[in-house]
């Protein structure tokens, strides 16, 4: 009888724990991101975006470090998505401080790799609870944000980057960073913490318009003339680097390995294009890549799932009506 009771009472305890602990939940986080103006069927963050397709052409340089087959020779197709940060699917492109690129590799029926990258090389803070407070501060205005930065010395690397950053004239000319570190693992079981970024290989094509769709229009026009290319560059950590702190930049002199070229060929602005169905949860990893303990990285899975669930349900209801 005791055992019986204990088992089933234990089912009620977690609820108590969750609601008493002073931790931000995935639901609270997504509520904050979507604000009062979320649009049914759209992502709660990075709502505005367009689907692209292309392929990765490896040069073999990374295959000693990981068993992920896309780094061996051959080409690997992907479905990507360019986006800008924010909850508004019709926001003016040039107002967003963060631009993004996500890619999904369908390596095999049992191996998928989802990647979601942003323009900054580091986060301002090191954990999701501080990140929540940072968003609250952003929403409260410049004074609050300044106070937030002053109270959080770990924001220094981010602020230094911000001071040096000038937004590019094109989504094709930005550098997109993994920010969070991951482990690569090779077939001998050797692990190495890495970060990566996509380094643009294109050139400016004259001034951009200043319409609401300036960046996506520019990208479409550019793709009519030919593919958009990036180098996929990996930064290899050394023993002394902290792979679990996304707010800390690793020293400049770390080994950089170019793993190959990302080639983007087509864009589809359609609201029902394939990438809109994808949850680019960066913790969807193939064998050969594993998550670090970085608290920001670890927080992403539940938050992305919550946003995905909400927009999926809205799409389902739309279809049922």
């Amino acid at each position: 009888m005791r055992l019986f009771h204990m088992i089933y009472l234990s089912m009620l305890l977690p609820a108590g724990y969750v609601f008493s602990a002073e931790q931000v939940t995935a639901q609270q986080f997504v509520n904050l991101q979507q604000g009062n103006t979320s649009v049914a069927g759209f992502r709660r963050a990075h709502a505005k975006g367009a689907c692209v397709t292309g392929y990765f052409e490896p040069n073999g340089q990374l295959s000693a470090l990981t068993q992920v087959p896309i780094f061996a020779l051959g080409t690997a197709p992907f479905i990507g998505r360019f986006s800008i940060a924010g909850n508004n699917p019709t926001a003016p492109d040039l107002k967003s401080p963060v631009r993004s690129l996500a890619v999904s590799f369908n390596i095999s029926p049992t191996q998928q790799w989802r990647i979601a990258m942003n323009t900054p090389p580091v986060m301002a803070v090191s954990n999701p609870h501080d990140f929540y407070q940072q968003i609250v501060a952003i929403q409260s205005g410049p004074q609050a944000l300044k106070a937030f930065f002053n109270a959080h010395p770990e924001t220094q690397d981010f602020l230094n980057w911000k001071a040096s950053y000038t937004p590019a004239q094109s989504l094709a000319l930005e550098r997109y960073h993994s920010i969070n570190a991951f482990y690569l693992e090779n077939s001998q079981g050797e692990k190495r913490a890495v970060r990566w970024y996509f380094e643009p290989l294109g050139h400016p094509m004259g001034p951009t318009s200043d319409t609401d769709n300036a960046l996506f229009d520019e990208l479409s026009a550019r793709l009519l003339k030919g593919p958009v290319k990036f180098n996929w560059v990996f930064i290899l950590s050394e023993e002394t680097d902290d792979e679990n702190d996304p707010a800390l930049r690793w020293p400049e002199n770390r080994e950089h390995v170019v793993a190959g070229k990302i080639v983007i060929e087509q864009i589809d602005m359609g609201l029902n294009a394939q990438c809109q169905s994808i949850n680019y949860d960066p913790l969807t990893l193939p064998s050969g890549v594993t998550a670090t303990a970085d608290p920001i990285l670890r927080a992403r899975s539940a938050a992305y799932a919550e946003s995905y669930r909400r927009r999926a349900k809205e799409k389902l209801l739309e279809v049922l009506q």
């Binding site: 029926p109 049992t110 998928q112 169905s277 994808i278 949850n279 669930r309 349900k313 799409k315």
Partner: peptide, 28 residues
């Protein structure tokens, strides 16, 4: 959701080649 399910690293369930957000939502 086109997300393979690994069973203790021993083997994985295959996932759909393309995600289907409507069917995902029904199941979820």
């Amino acid at each position: 959701a086109s997300r393979p399910v690994s069973i203790f690293g021993l083997f994985s369930f295959p996932a759909a080649e393309q995600s289907n957000i409507i069917l995902y939502s029904m199941a979820r």
